[in-house]
Simulated scan of single mutants.
Amino acid sequence: MQFKPSNRQPIVINRQPYFVNLRLDWRDFIVYLAFVTVFLFFAITIGDQGFLTISNISNIIRATTMITIMATAMTFVIASGEIDLSIGATVAFAALCTSLAMQAGLGLIGGIVSGLLAGVLIGSINGFLTTIVAIPSFLVTLGMMQLVRGVAMWMTDTSPVPVNNENFLKIFGTDSIGPIPTLVIWSVSVLFIGHILLKKTSFGRKILATGGNSISASYSGVNTKKVKFYALIISGIGAAIAGMLYSGAMQSARYTFGQADELTVIAAVILGGTNLYGGRGSVAGTIAGSLLIGTINNGLIIIGLSVSQQMVISGAIIILAVAFGKKRTSA
C-alpha cells in the first residue's frame, strides 16, 4: 500500500494523480501583512497630508492597474517555471498597433483586435523559441525585449500616435462607471478571471504541475511544452491589454510605454508568493504585491522623495523580492 502524507492531496490530470503540497505556510500571507503594515505606517505618518483621502486611495489603485494586469499574466509564466522579460516592450508595441489601426480607419473593434493580435504574436514567438527550439525563456525574452522595443520606435519614428476614438477612451481611459473608475473595474475583472483560471481549472493545475516538476507532470499526461507555450501567450495578451490602458489614460500611444515595467511586474509576482522557479502561484497574492509597491511609491511621492531616491527604494524592493522568493524555494 502506498503511503500518502496527510498534507498532500492528489490532483488528477488526464486520469493520473499528481500530488501537490497543501500545507499552509506563514510566508503565504506575508505580502498581505506587509501591505497592511506599510499602509498603516503611511496612514499614521502622512495621513494628514492627503494619504487617506478617497481620491488618493483611488489613485493608488488606478496607478497600479497596468502593473496589476501584467503581473497577473506573469504569474502564469513564472508559476510554469519560465519568465518573460519582453512584457514591457510588448505593452508599447501593442499600444502602437492599436492606435495605428484606429487611425487607419479600422475603428474600435479593429484597433482592439490589432492590439490583442500583437500580444498573441509576440507571446507565440516567445513560446515557440522556448518550447520547440528549447532556448531558455530568459534569453529569448531578453532578446525579444530589445527587438520589440526597437520595432516600436521604428514604427512611428519615436513619435507618439494620438488616440481620438471616444469609445476607446471610455473603455480604456480614465472614465468611470458611476462612482467606480474604469481602471478599477479592469483590475477587479482581471483578478477574478486570473484567480479562477489558475486555481479552479485544469489548465491552472497543469501550470502548477509543470512548474513544480515538469518530468512528473509529463508522466501524468501533461503536455508541458503546450502549457508553457500558452502561458507565454497569456503574458502577451496581458501586456496588450495594459498597452491599451496606457493609451487610454494618456490618449496616445508611445514607444516608451512599459519601460522597466518588467522589473516591477516580476517583483509584484514574487512578493505575492509565486515561486521564482515555478510550481507555486497566487493571483490574489500578486495583486497584493502590486498594491504594496504602488502604495510605497505613492507614500514616497507624498513624503517628497526625489526620483533618484524612489529608484533606490524600488531597486531594494526588487532585490528583497527575489531574495525572498529564493528563500521560499530552499525552505
Results as ranks from 00 to 15, higher is better:
residue 133 V to E: 06
residue 133 V to Y: 02
residue 134 A to T: 12
residue 135 I to V: 13
residue 137 S to H: 05
residue 137 S to D: 04
residue 138 F to R: 03
residue 139 L to P: 03
residue 139 L to Q: 13
residue 139 L to H: 14
residue 140 V to T: 04
residue 140 V to L: 08
residue 141 T to K: 07
residue 141 T to R: 09
residue 141 T to P: 01
residue 141 T to I: 02
residue 142 L to V: 05
residue 143 G to M: 11
residue 145 M to E: 03
residue 146 Q to I: 09
residue 146 Q to V: 13
residue 147 L to C: 06
residue 148 V to A: 12
residue 148 V to H: 00
residue 150 G to T: 04
residue 153 M to W: 12
residue 154 W to C: 09
residue 155 M to R: 14
residue 156 T to R: 01
residue 157 D to I: 15
residue 157 D to M: 08
residue 158 T to C: 04
residue 160 P to K: 09
residue 161 V to C: 04
residue 161 V to G: 02
residue 162 P to N: 00
residue 162 P to A: 01
residue 163 V to T: 00
residue 164 N to F: 13
residue 165 N to E: 03
residue 165 N to P: 09
residue 166 E to M: 10
residue 166 E to G: 08
residue 166 E to N: 14
residue 167 N to E: 15
residue 168 F to P: 00
residue 169 L to R: 04
residue 169 L to T: 02
residue 170 K to M: 11
residue 171 I to W: 01
residue 172 F to I: 06
residue 172 F to R: 03
residue 173 G to Y: 12
residue 174 T to M: 07
residue 175 D to C: 11
residue 176 S to I: 08
residue 180 I to L: 09
residue 180 I to S: 07
residue 181 P to Q: 04
residue 182 T to E: 03
residue 183 L to H: 01
residue 184 V to Q: 00
residue 186 W to I: 12
residue 187 S to K: 07
residue 188 V to D: 01
residue 188 V to Q: 01
residue 189 S to A: 13
residue 189 S to P: 12
residue 190 V to H: 03
residue 191 L to V: 03
residue 191 L to Q: 08
residue 192 F to P: 03
residue 193 I to C: 06
residue 193 I to Q: 14
residue 193 I to K: 11
residue 195 H to Y: 12
residue 195 H to S: 15
residue 195 H to C: 09
residue 195 H to F: 06
residue 197 L to Y: 02
residue 197 L to T: 11
residue 197 L to G: 02
residue 199 K to I: 04
residue 200 K to Y: 12
residue 200 K to V: 09
residue 203 F to K: 04
residue 204 G to V: 03
residue 205 R to E: 06
residue 205 R to Q: 13
residue 207 I to T: 00
residue 208 L to F: 10
residue 210 T to I: 05
residue 210 T to R: 04
residue 212 G to F: 01
residue 213 N to D: 15
residue 213 N to V: 03
residue 213 N to R: 15
residue 214 S to H: 13
residue 215 I to D: 10
residue 216 S to W: 07
residue 216 S to K: 09
residue 217 A to F: 15
residue 217 A to C: 12
residue 218 S to A: 13
residue 218 S to C: 14
residue 220 S to R: 06
residue 221 G to V: 00
residue 221 G to W: 06
residue 222 V to P: 05
residue 222 V to D: 01
residue 224 T to S: 10
residue 225 K to G: 11
residue 225 K to A: 14
residue 226 K to T: 14
residue 227 V to Y: 00
residue 228 K to E: 13
residue 229 F to Y: 11
residue 230 Y to N: 13
residue 233 I to E: 06
residue 233 I to A: 08
residue 234 I to W: 00
residue 234 I to S: 05
residue 234 I to K: 03
residue 236 G to E: 10
